[in-house]
């Protein structure tokens, strides 16, 4: 280190560092002041966000009124619907969002929809819909006829209770229709209370779970009745098994799907 007769030791801060220091100090203070000025108010009050944003989201306009509001004026329809199959179906599902109408903010009234496609959106047959949900095959159920001519939308029970279980259990009926159990009517195995079509989940049909039940037709030496609910069983080749040894202690439907029982 060249000692030029003066105070030049490594302790003295070189000029260029001071120059830089000034620049950085200026920048740093500037950044800090800008930050103080521009951080939005309410930021950080409740967390790392603008607390005022919560109110902004909560202030969005409302479109759906909710069925209880409809009851204030349209009591008859709501009361009827409350006791029907559509009791869980909100008015605005079919009649559209009605907040403006309910709050008298508009002269327009919600539409009275009549096109088949509205009903079919829920009720056309799709195997993915849960069993027990009423479904129809569009082309075979009064094609082109408007639904409300037979079904009151606020009380849509059909005028006659459908005889076939296929109205609600379409997937099962379709599977069974191409199986060995096709000739058997559902009621052969499932004793069904009359109320089942009115309050399905509270009046469940009986499901047989004794091996002997299936054995009534399928056990070796069993003598099933000749005619069961209009079907002559003597016209069919009924498979027989030894009920004592076949399948151990398992119940029959633990291996054989009862609606398509052919062993695969």
């Amino acid at each position: 280190m060249c000692d030029s007769g003066g105070a030049l030791r490594t302790r003295k801060i070189p000029v260029q560092v001071i120059q830089l220091g000034v620049v950085f100090l200026f920048l740093g203070v500037g950044m800090f002041l800008l930050r103080q000025r521009f951080v939005p108010e309410s930021f950080g009050d409740l967390g790392h966000y603008r607390a005022n944003a919560v109110g902004a989201v909560a202030a969005h306009p409302i479109q759906y009124a909710g069925w209880q509001v409809c009851a204030d004026c349209h009591t008859d329809e709501v009361e009827t619907k409350k006791r029907s199959y559509h009791r869980t179906l909100s008015c605005e599902v079919c009649h559209g969002a009605a907040w403006a109408h309910a709050n008298e903010e508009t002269d327009e009234t919600p539409p009275l929809p009549t096109q088949r496609s509205l009903c079919l959106q829920c009720h056309s047959y799709l195997p993915s819909r849960p069993t027990g949900f009423p479904q129809i095959v569009e082309e075979r159920h009064e094609p082109a006829k408007l639904c409300h001519t037979c079904h009151n939308p606020h009380d849509p029970a059909p005028s006659e209770t459908p005889e076939s279980c296929s109205a609600c259990h379409a997937a099962i009926v379709r599977v069974k229709a191409v199986s060995h159990h096709a000739p058997l009517d559902c009621q052969v195995c499932h004793e069904t209370p009359a109320q089942h079509s009115v309050l399905p989940r509270s009046n469940l049909p009986r499901k047989p779970f004794e091996r002997e039940f299936c054995g009534k037709c399928h056990a070796k030496g069993a003598k099933p009745p000749n005619v069961v609910r209009g079907v002559d069983l003597r016209e069919y080749d009924i498979r027989r098994i030894d009920l004592d040894t076949h399948g151990g202690t398992l119940v029959c439907w633990q291996c054989h799907y009862q609606h398509s029982p052919e062993a695969r």
Binding site: M1, C2, S4, L8, P14, V15, Q16, Q19, L20, V23
Partner: peptide
């Protein structure tokens, strides 16, 4: 930055 010092140090 207006630097002037180019001494060896």
């Amino acid at each position: 930055l207006g630097s002037r010092d180019v001494s060896p140090e």
